[in-house]
Design a protein around this nucleic acid. Structure first.
Lengths: 223, 223
DNA sequence: TTTCACCCTGACATTAAGTGTCAGGGTGTG
DNA sequence: CACACCCTGACACTTAATGTCAGGGTGAAA
């Protein structure tokens, strides 16, 4: 839907401090440059304070429209630290997402809170490297979200390789590992898999329905 | 242009005290009723607080339409997990703040993302109890924020109690502990203090200025 | 001055989205 | 119950949007 893309453009311009070229926007939004030029004309006709300059790119003229979100100091601390914690315990995709989310929240803040938020002397430490490759994490997050079954090859504690089709129900982040909770169609029961022990994970086209007794919440109730 | 009509609908609903029927809107905007129903569905998916009731008509639920805050799926995952991580590693104050922040972000999302956000099967695990008392954490966060010196009583590794006045510069959350980084006025150097080993912490009225070489960033550069 | 990186717009074939009509089902109020 | 409304799917048709190509402009750096 085009209207979503128009809002996305405004979003990106707001978040980014430097001009963005039509080429960059087009690539990021998977449309042609011509479409971006048209979108800009539409946004301008709607009164959005967007300006384009030859050789430079597009930028936002003023801080516009989005009413500030109101977070108190504790809430902002929680956000900063939370985003740091997840960034230091996940893969590049999720770490970058945390950074982007932080930037968006920053820009939705009122002026007086932005500086403090941006420069807050708070950090999170992880014993592992700051960001690293966690193969399959993004695949699992997507599968959980879309309720898509996965064909899994797993190396268990006995060093045996098993294969099965699972319903990925939920994910848990630990300090140094991720755990995928699934309903195993082979064993007809819940099973947990350490993500780092997964050898292969292939998405299937098969989605799984909601079934009482086989949901993430049902598993959590067994703990 | 459709987007103009969508905004026109919002304007009419905002201005009118009583419900307006799709038939009336259709006539006024020179489109069919079916188109109005579609437009309403679009507006609702965008998060506009518009409600329709059989036999009554459409009206605005609240007096104010917030343009949605746009987070993609990865960003929402990062927020959920980050808030869970911090909530499970801090004191009640910060854990509650994380929950409040999560709720506020949820409210700022468009309608179609709220349900998914709210019920996301993602969690964070901590080996310590979910929330607990961490004496002085809030005091330190405030002191860091306001750049206020603290009179500290600390139990070091040799089981000796020391007292000193410090400039609290920053905080680091570890998996099971918090570390306060400070500039110690007694030793004239950086010092780190495990928050759980602090015996007392008294705020002073004295604030400390920015001094090159004595900031949290300066300390981070030594690592 | 030239070159490069960008903004900008028209034209046109193609693709995608939107529309109105029709049908059928539901809710609220008097 | 009748009436006034909301709601949604299907489908033929209409309109809007898109990408490619072409050509022109501006600002900054060499």
């Amino acid at each position: 839907m085009r209207i979503i893309r128009l809002f996305s453009i405004l979003d990106k311009l707001r978040v980014n401090r430097h001009p963005i070229s039509a080429k960059t926007l087009a690539k990021s939004l998977h449309v042609s440059e011509r479409t971006i030029y048209r979108d800009m004309a539409t946004l301008q006709s709607m009164g959005a304070p967007v300006r384009g300059e030859g050789g430079i790119g597009y930028q936002m003229e003023k801080g516009y429209f989005l009413p500030p979100l109101h977070f108190d100091s504790d809430e902002l601390d929680a956000i900063i630290l939370g985003m740091e914690l997840i960034a230091s315990r996940s893969d590049d995709v999720l770490a970058n997402a945390a950074r982007r989310a932080t930037a968006k929240i920053n820009d939705a803040l009122s002026e007086d809170k932005r500086e403090a938020f941006k420069n807050a002397p708070l950090q999170a430490f992880s014993q592992t490297t700051k960001t690293r490759k966690i193969p399959f994490l993004s695949i699992f997050r997507k599968a959980v979200r879309k309720r898509q079954c996965i064909d899994l090859t797993y190396l268990d504690l006995k060093k045996q390789t098993t294969q099965r089709t699972i319903r990925p129900l939920g994910l848990t982040v630990f300090d140094k590992a991720w755990l995928l909770t699934a309903w195993c169609e082979k064993k007809n029961d819940f099973r947990n898999f350490r993500v780092d022990r997964v050898q292969s994970a292939a998405q299937t086209d098969k989605t799984f329905p909601r079934e009482t007794g086989k949901e993430f919440n049902d598993f959590l109730k067994t703990l």
